[in-house]
Structures are given as C-alpha cells and as structure tokens.
Computed example of a mutant assay.
Amino acid sequence: MSAGKPADSPRRIKSVQKASTILETVQYLEEPTFNRLCKELDVSKGTVHTYLETLEDEGLIIKSDGTYQLGFRLVTMGEAVRNQSDLYRAGQAEVEKLAEETGEWVHLTVEHQGREVTIYESSGDNAVATDYHHRIREAPQHLHHTATGKAILACFNDKRVRGIVEQRGLTGRTEETITDIDRLLEELERIRDRGYAVNDEEEVRGIRSIGTAIQAGSGWVNGAISVTAPVSRLSGKYFESEVPELVMEAANIIEVNLETADVEMRQ
C-alpha cells in the first residue's frame, strides 16, 4: 500500500486513467504533436507512443500531418450519451421553443464532476457570438460564473459548494466574476430566494444570461436552462422580469416532462 493512501481507497486501472488523460490533452492542446504531448504528459516517449498507437487503432484519435486530434468514433459515443439522457429528451423541444421566442442563445446544461457540461443548445434569429458558444460546448465550464452553473450550485448545500470550489477554484473571467467563496454563498442564497440566477458579464464582457435549475420532485437537480444575450438587448424589464419568467416557465415544463416520463416507465 502506498504511503498516505487510505486502506479502503477504491482500486483504479492506471492504464485507463492514462488513456483518458492523453485524450483530454489531445483535445485541449492547440498543436498536439508527439513531442508536445510527451512534454505535457511528463512520461517517456516510448509510453506515449504506445498509447497513441493503441488509441489510433481503436479510432479514438487520428494522426494527420504530424499532429493528433480526437477520432470520429467519439462523435457517435457523444451522440449516444446525449440521446440516452432523460433531460435531453424532456428538454430539447423547450430549448428550441425558448430560442425561437427570445431570438437568443438557449443552453441546456448538467453538472459533472464539479463542472458544467452543455448537452444541447439552440440559437434564435438574433443570437450572436456563435463561435464562442460552439467552443464552450466542447469543454466543461466552471459553475460559478455562468447563470446555469450558479442555478445548479444553489441547489446544493454549502458543504458541497465549498467542496466543488476547493476542487475547481474560483477562476476570474472578467472583473465581474465572483472569486470569493463568501460572496458566492451569499449570491446562491439570493438565487434560492428569487428562483433564478443571473450572469451579469461575469463570463464574457457585454453578455448577460438568465438561468434556472431543473429539479426532480425529490429536490434532485437534473440540470439547468438559460437564455444568453448581449447587454444591449437583455436589459431593463426584459432582463429583470420578462426573460426570468420565460426561463422558469420552460424549466417547469421540462420538469413536468421528466416526471410524466418517469411515471410512464413505472407503469
């Protein structure tokens, strides 16, 4: 047993963990060449080469012109993950309806390992920053600076919130981002009181979002839904009451869809 490792610590397969790390590194590196991967992973070139060759054989990565990228086999895996999600099936139509009604970006998200993952989004006729919204779908985001993320955090107790912050930190994205745990806890209490969260230029300057959690009857949080738009459009009464009402209505309908689907499965 290694020093400092609890006796009841669950066993893990290190080769699987290493393969996962390599896939993530290929995903996030701007130019994932063999030498760059060896430097980032801090393991021997022989080990990296063996893993890369195996992952390429399995269709999980592709080598082209000396650089690596994720393989198309992962596309079908990702589609399967999303299509099997109860939240996606219950919320897809409402996301599209809300995007059409507001003309803006609408996101459906879940919490995974202390971060936020977008499982579906739809853009209305007036939606802006398309490239940015596509990029954030490719990587998990911090919870504390998005409307959906804060709405989800507000469903957790303070102990769990502190655990996530300890693990993931409170990275500042703009001068408006909350980077203090006590301020975050105060903000989460306000979210619980009013029923929705606000991202007021905390992630990107000039952009606001309104988000609310989607919960099961037991209080379990399934995910969250949000509307995102430029400050110039998401302001005044539209920002303070109209969009929050639309977002909370959409969340309520998704909750009903989830509940009725669960009832049908039990019958």
Rank of each mutant, 00 (worst) to 15 (best):
Q27M: 07
T50P: 08
G71N: 08
R73P: 02
E31Y: 15
V43Y: 11
G66Y: 01
T54F: 14
V43I: 13
T67N: 08
G46I: 07
L29P: 14
E53N: 13
T54E: 15
E58F: 15
Y68G: 00
L52E: 02
T67S: 13
T50L: 06
E30S: 08
F72V: 13
T47M: 07
P32R: 00
Y68D: 00
Y51R: 02
E56G: 01
E40M: 06
T54I: 06
T50C: 08
H49T: 12
E53T: 10
E56P: 08
G71H: 02
Y51T: 00
G59V: 02
E56M: 03
Y28D: 13
L37G: 07
G71W: 00
F34N: 06
G71P: 07
G71Q: 05
D65E: 15
F72G: 15
T67K: 04
S44G: 14
D42H: 11
K39R: 08
E56H: 13
S64T: 09
L55Q: 02
H49G: 11
L70E: 03
Y28A: 05
Y51P: 15
L29S: 05
L70M: 02
E56A: 05
S64G: 05
L29F: 14
S44M: 00
S64M: 15
R73M: 07
T54D: 12
E40H: 15
I62P: 05
T67Q: 06
C38W: 01
I61S: 01
E40L: 00
Q69P: 13
L70A: 00
L37N: 04
R73V: 06
E53G: 05
V43S: 09
Y51Q: 02
T67Y: 04
F72Y: 01
L70I: 05
N35D: 15
H49I: 09
K63D: 06
F34G: 02
K39I: 14
F72W: 02
T67R: 03
T54G: 06
K45F: 09
T33D: 13
E56W: 04
E56R: 11
F72K: 10
E31F: 14
F72D: 14
E53Y: 11
G59R: 08
H49Y: 15
T50Q: 13
P32W: 04
G66K: 00
Y68T: 01
L52Q: 05
G46L: 05
T67V: 07
L52S: 03
Y51F: 11
L60Q: 07
Y28K: 09
E31K: 03
C38F: 13
K39D: 12
S64L: 10
L41Y: 08
S44P: 08
N35T: 15
